[in-house]
């Protein structure tokens, strides 16, 4: 800029100034890049320290006994069987409830809904709901599901609560996924005489599936670490029996009785052990943290894998 405005400078001086400007810009570049690297190293270092600390303290405690025992007053006998079974059942219920509803809602908002003030209002609210603190969902569920509908403090209610919690995430990611599909795909399908639902079912949903699944699993991996709403609806802390199994030995061989059973989940068990005075329980808490982290990583890993597989199959 300086070079262009000051016309009375000689050519050589202008060149020198330009070179100076470039050198300066490069120097700034280096400084910014260095800052970025330093900050990233610090953030990663902090994260790795936390994970490492948890792993060092907890990893040695994870064995068959720990995974197959119920909680106990003696830290060395205690285990997380009821907690991890509870976590998985709650996640299963959450997924079954939130994913179909979320996908259909996203599809409706993106493809079917007329653009007017009502759909705008819904849109704004969905976006806002994604940022509501999770305890609010817990309070809502306590008032509505537990006391209003009298459903009790069951796995079903926990699944519904966490389902509500991740619904905005599923809806938003579904809409993003649908929006990223090239218009030609849709137009070509219409051009071939497909009706709206055929276009949705055969073209839009398959093409959007990687994005939808990623959103759903990111939502689930958020839900699995949630403690506040689950405690609010009244999950237990000590429970030394499992819900009735979903597979029975008599007709019809499938039972949903477990949906109506009481439960605990991994974060609650961890929270309880962290605040106990005995060191043995702190080690158990760290071990529970490691298990929780492995479950979350497994969910995220699954999301990446599914996305990779589906992207390939869509292209072919």
């Amino acid at each position: 800029m300086a070079v262009m405005t000051e016309g009375n400078l000689s050519g050589a001086a202008a060149t020198a100034a330009a070179v100076g400007a470039i050198t300066r810009a490069k120097r700034i570049d280096i400084v910014v890049a260095a800052c970025g690297v330093v900050i990233m190293v610090m953030a990663m270092g902090l994260l790795l320290t936390l994970i490492g600390d948890l792993a060092i303290r907890g990893l040695g405690r994870i064995d068959y006994q720990f995974l197959t025992s119920f909680p106990s007053r003696r830290p060395e006998n205690a285990g997380i069987l009821s907690a991890w079974v509870g976590s998985i059942l709650v996640m299963l219920t959450t997924a079954v409830l939130a994913i179909p509803i979320g996908v259909l809602a996203g599809l409706y908002l993106e493809e079917y809904a007329r653009k007017n003030w009502i759909s705008n209002l819904i849109e704004i609210n969905v976006a806002n709901l994604a940022g509501v603190p999770s305890i609010i969902y817990g309070l809502l569920a306590l008032g509505l599901f537990v006391y209003g509908l009298n459903l009790g403090k069951t796995i079903l209610v926990a699944g519904m609560t966490l389902g509500l919690l991740i619904l905005p995430i599923v809806i938003v990611s579904t809409r993003e996924a649908i929006r990223s599909i090239p218009l030609i795909v849709k137009e070509a399908a219409y051009g071939l005489g497909a009706d709206k639902w055929q276009v949705m079912w055969h073209y839009i949903i398959p093409a959007a599936r990687p994005g939808i699944l990623t959103g759903a699993i990111v939502g689930l991996s958020r839900a699995i670490g949630e403690t506040a709403p689950i405690i609010t609806i009244g999950a237990l802390t000590f429970i030394a029996f499992l819900p009735p199994p979903p597979i029975t030995d008599s007709f019809p061989f499938i039972s949903f009785a477990w949906l109506h059973d009481q439960f605990t989940v991994l974060p609650i068990q961890m929270f309880n052990w962290v605040s106990r005075p005995q060191e043995g329980f702190h080690i158990n808490a760290a071990a529970t943290g490691v298990v929780l982290m492995v479950l979350t990583l497994a969910l995220n890993g699954m999301a990446i894998y599914i996305r990779y597989r589906l992207r390939r199959s869509v292209r072919n």
């Binding site: 689930l220 029996f241 199994p245 599914i306």
Partner: peptide, 25 residues
């Protein structure tokens, strides 16, 4: 796929550690 995996994981858990199904006091 996810649901299937989760379902089979929890089913496996119950086959391994399932207790009596009867409602208990």
């Amino acid at each position: 796929m996810t649901r299937l995996l989760l379902a089979s994981a929890s089913a496996a858990a119950f086959v391994a550690f399932g207790g009596p199904a009867a409602a208990q006091a």
